[in-house]
Nucleic acid binder design. Structure first.
Length: 557
RNA sequence: GCGCCCGUAGCUCAGUGGAUAGAGUACUUGGCUUCGAACCAAGGGGUCGCAAGUUCAAAUCUUGCCGGGCGUACCA
């Protein structure tokens, strides 16, 4: 049979001489399996009432649709509702898990996200951006792309100056010896120690003029380490040792959390020379200009802000480093699409950077997408702030989750990931520590549990013959119908790069299954063969959907 | 001031042009001798911030207003 859409398009062409695209949506279950409002759209130009148009289309299409469609009706103001035959619905359900929208087929995609800074704490915000980025990367990958995951972080800059100032202290030799002692301690403790040093340096910078001058000096020295490729001086040894600890800590954390590893870190020390050179080169071309001793991009002529790329001390700001990052990524990958996933506090900033790059590399911004998410906040919309002492660190989240799940890490991490992903990416997210590790309701563990129950049935059943097809009972039909929605949902999630659509769907699917499960026995029932096929299709879709979110679907919990 | 984003049930959120606006949670109540009760069923709870406009049809699009967040030159 032709696609139902095609049948309708031909019918409308024959009846009214109109060329229109027919789109079907999933209506409320009481109305059928597919619905279209095409009659409402074309009624005006035909000059007949929408219901009349719908009726004529329906009558004419009936014969061409064949046995796959069991019913077709006109309802409401002129909707056309289509009900699929039970047999067709079962077939679609069984194919659902394997169907992937190949929207990014053979595309080379670079996905940048997470972006923690060495020497600083890996806080809850990094946790969120990491989980979101991981899910988006997997979606794009499922849609056919070759995805390269990259990470960007500030291994130079004022924050490093602050941390290094505190690490070095009065006596550099002593500091180096101290590192040798620290090396024996767990990675997490070392990371915490560095973060504390940063806080110490940060406080000193604000409160002590002498320290401030020293920190500014330290910042420059760190740049020099890279400029001279220094690995032998005492300062360079301290710096590189600490930086390596940070990277090791990040990698260990990603592995622990269960997100895909990063292929490459772009440290700012690497992108900085590229950015500096590019900005200076384009200064000569008139893209950037001097202003008050700094080098800026005049964004105002494009309705954006004017921003400083190289400050009056000759040091690059984040802007120049980001120009360098964009150039480095392009040099390394020649990507079709570059995804940059960050918080939404830098949307305006990123527009300026990309607009400036557009002036000399016009091919890059069109293939770059800046995807942003909101900030993690606490109940009542309170912002996390180290001064208020209400900062959550990534590790705190994992610990709390693990405790709540009574030491079951798999369940704990599933709960937290799902809690973050179920909300639409973009707006702020109110993080409720206790709700995020809930095992009930719209949660990761609920979906995992529903999956395990289904697998348990399948494991106990010992038959594989499909049996003779028989018509569905209502709860079977609801389940089959819900399963068939999966490819549409996946397509929407991929198109919009919005993982939450998958969460919403998986929860509804699991709920539909649980209702079925509650009232229908599978093993030993006279309908066993049919029901086993449904349970199988259901479990496969659930597992596939969870894998998109990078949440495991164990057979037992 | 200007720019971007947001405002849906007590709370946390789905729904972004379509049919009676839905979930979770909290509260009340019922259901395990039966394939896994981390489950299911029932109940109350809404000026979709306000107003006007566009449309056969608006929570959804447009405009204005109110409220909140973020950004707005050498932080990232």
């Amino acid at each position: 049979m032709q696609h139902i859409e095609t049948v309708f398009e031909h019918t409308i062409q024959d009846l009214f001489g109109l060329e229109v695209k027919v789109v079907f949506t999933r209506p409320d279950e009481q109305f059928g399996d597919l619905a279209t409002n095409v009659a409402l759209h074309i009624a005006k130009q035909i000059g007949v009432s929408p219901r009349e148009v719908a009726t004529r289309i329906t009558d004419a299409a009936k014969d061409a649709l064949g046995a796959d469609v069991s019913d077709i009706t006109v309802a409401g103001p002129g909707f056309i509702n289509v009900t699929l035959s039970d047999n067709e619905l079962l077939g679609r359900a069984q194919a659902a898990a394997a169907e992937k929208p190949q929207i990014y087929q053979d595309k080379l995609v670079v996905a940048e996200y997470s972006d923690p800074n060495p020497f600083k704490a890996f806080h809850a915000g990094h946790f969120y951006t990491t989980v979101v980025g991981d899910a988006i990367a997997r979606l794009v990958q499922a849609a056919g792309a070759k995805v390269h995951r990259v990470n960007f972080g500030g291994d130079v800059g004022l924050h490093v100056g602050k941390a290094m100032w505190a690490i070095v202290g009065e006596d550099m030799q002593k500091a180096l010896e101290n590192l040798e002692v620290l090396a024996a301690q767990p990675l997490h403790d070392r990371a915490t120690w560095m973060a504390e040093c940063y806080v110490k340096g940060n406080t000193a910078y604000d409160e002590d003029e002498t320290a401030k001058a020293q920190i500014i000096g330290m910042n420059k020295k760190v740049y020099l380490i890279h400029e001279q490729d220094d690995h032998t001086s005492t300062l360079a040894k301290i710096y590189h040792t600490c930086r390596d600890w940070s990277y090791e800590y990040f990698d260990a954390f990603y592995q622990e959390l269960g997100v895909d590893p990063f292929e490459k870190y772009y440290p700012e020390s690497q992108t900085t020379p590229v950015g500096l050179a590019t900005v200076k080169e384009q200064l000569a071309q008139g893209v950037y200009k001097k202003s008050n001793g700094a080098i800026v991009f005049d964004g105002e002529q494009f309705g954006l802000h004017t921003r400083v790329f190289i400050n009056s001390e000759g040091l690059p700001t984040y802007e120049a480093k980001d120009v360098g990052l964009i150039m480095a990524k392009w040099h390394d990958y020649r990507f079709d699409l570059s995804l940059i996933i960050t918080g939404n506090d830098i949307v305006e900033y990123m527009k300026v950077v990309l607009k400036s790059v557009e002036q000399f590399m016009p091919e890059l911004p069109p293939r770059t997408r800046h995807l942003t998410h909101g900030m993690l906040k606490l109940e009542g919309g309170a912002k996390m702030s180290s001064r208020k002492g209400n900062v959550l660190y990534a590790n705190d989240i994992l610990q709390a989750a693990e405790t709540a799940a009574k030491g079951d890490k798999q369940t704990a991490y599933a709960a937290v990931k799902y809690a973050l992903l179920k909300q639409r990416t973009g707006g702020d997210i109110i993080y409720n520590p206790s709700e995020s590790v809930a095992l009930e309701g719209n949660s990761g563990p609920y979906v995992q549990y529903a999956h395990a129950r289904a697998r348990s049935i399948l494991a106990k059943a010992n038959r594989s013959d499909p049996g003779d097809f028989i018509d569905f009972e209502p709860s079977e039909r609801s389940l089959a119908r819900k399963i068939t929605e999966y490819p549409t949902v996946l397509e929407k999630a991929v198109t919009e790069l919005m993982p939450h659509h998958i969460c919403t769907y998986l929860y509804e699917l699991a709920q539909t299954f649980n209702r079925f499960y509650e009232q229908s026995r599978v093993i030993g029932d006279e309908r066993e063969a049919l029901r086993l096929q449904l349970v199988h299709a259901y479990a496969d879709v659930l597992k596939d959907g969870l894998s998109m979110l990078h949440i495991p679907a164990p057979e037992h919990l």
